[in-house]
Amino acid sequence: MLGIFSSSIMSPPEDLVAAGSRTPSPKVTAAKLEARFLEANSSAVSVRIGDDVQLAYTHCNQSSLQPRLFAVKDEIFCLFEGSLDNLGSLKQQYGLAKSANEVLLVIEAYKTLRDRAPYPPNHVVGHLQGNFAFIVFDKTTSTLFVATDQQAKVPLYWGITADGCVAFANDADLLKGACGKSLASFPQGCFFSTTVGELRSYENPKNKITAVPALEEEIWGARFMVEKPSIIAATTK
Rank of each mutant, 00 (worst) to 15 (best):
S89R: 02
F37I: 15
A222R: 03
G130V: 11
A162N: 14
L84N: 00
R200G: 03
F137D: 00
K111F: 01
D163C: 12
C60N: 13
G197I: 01
L33I: 12
T29K: 07
K237S: 15
Y119K: 15
P118Q: 09
N61P: 05
A211D: 06
P12L: 06
Q129C: 14
K208I: 15
V47K: 10
N204L: 12
Q66P: 03
I209A: 07
G164T: 06
I76R: 02
P24M: 07
M225F: 12
S99P: 01
A30E: 03
L55T: 15
L79D: 05
E218V: 08
D15S: 15
I107D: 00
A233Q: 04
Q150H: 11
D15K: 14
L104Q: 03
N61E: 10
T141W: 13
I9G: 14
Q93K: 00
A109L: 07
Y57H: 10
F192I: 03
D51A: 05
K98F: 00
V72H: 09
I107N: 02
P13E: 05
D149F: 00
A100N: 01
L156M: 09
E203Y: 13
V166I: 08
S7Y: 07
S6V: 10
F168I: 07
K139M: 14
D15Y: 13
V146M: 10
N101A: 14
A97K: 08
Q66E: 06
P12G: 04
A100Y: 00
